[in-house]
C-alpha cells in the first residue's frame, strides 16, 4: 500500500504507469468518518506486481484529478465513486451519474447519510424484557447497535 497526497494523485499514478503499473484494477473510496480514503489498485501486467494507492480527501471538499486520460477504465469507477461518496473528479470526460437516478440524493455510502429504513423503522429491540412495566419501572433505554442515536425513531 502506498499513501500519497491527494494533490499529487495524478502525478503518482502517472509515475507508476511509467514504472509498469499500466493496468487499473479498480478505484473506490472508503469513508473513515474523519475523511475519505480514495483507493486505486494498479497492476503491472508483466510482473503481476500489484499496489494499492491511497489518498486522503477531506469529506467536505473531496476534489481530485480524474485518472481517465491515464486509465480509460477509470471512467465508470470514478462515476460510481462520485455519486456514492460525493467526490468530484476534475477533468472527467463524462461526469454523469452511473447508477443512481436521483440527482439530489445525498451520497449513500457516506456514513453521515441517513439510511431511511433505519430512520423510519421502530427498532424491535427497544421493548423491555417482561414488558415496560417489569418490576414497576422502565428499564434503561437501549439503542440499536451500529445506528447513530439521532437516526433512531422515537418510540411511543
Amino acid at each position: 500500500m502506498r499513501t500519497v497526497e491527494s494533490s499529487r494523485w495524478w502525478e503518482e499514478l502517472s509515475a507508476l504507469a511509467v514504472d509498469g503499473f499500466t493496468y487499473l484494477d479498480y478505484l473506490t473510496a472508503i469513508d473513515r468518518g474523519t475523511h475519505l480514503d480514495l483507493v486505486a489498485h494498479v497492476v503491472n501486467p508483466d510482473t503481476v506486481e500489484h499496489l494499492l494507492v491511497v489518498a486522503a480527501l477531506p469529506g467536505d471538499s473531496a476534489v481530485v484529478d480524474s485518472l481517465v486520460p491515464l486509465h480509460a477504465g477509470a471512467n465508470w469507477h470514478e462515476r460510481e465513486a462520485a455519486e456514492m461518496f460525493g467526490i468530484t473528479f476534475t477533468g472527467h470526460p463524462d461526469p454523469r451519474r452511473l447508477l443512481l437516478r436521483d440527482e439530489s440524493a445525498a451520497p449513500p455510502l457516506r456514513k453521515s447519510t441517513p439510511l431511511p429504513a433505519r430512520v423510519d423503522t421502530p427498532w424491535p429491540g427497544a421493548a423491555t424484557a417482561g414488558g415496560d412495566d417489569a418490576a414497576g419501572r422502565r428499564a434503561r433505554r437501549q439503542l440499536p447497535p451500529g445506528v447513530p442515536a439521532q437516526w433512531v425513531a422515537e418510540g411511543p
Binding site: 423503522t121 427498532w123 424491535p124 429491540g125 421493548a127 424484557a129 417482561g130 414488558g131 412495566d133 417489569a134 418490576a135 440499536p144
Partner: peptide
C-alpha cells in the same frame, strides 16, 4: 436485519 419481534410480560 431487525427481523425478530418479541413480546413478554412479567
Amino acid at each position: 436485519s431487525w427481523c425478530i419481534t418479541l413480546e413478554s410480560h412479567a
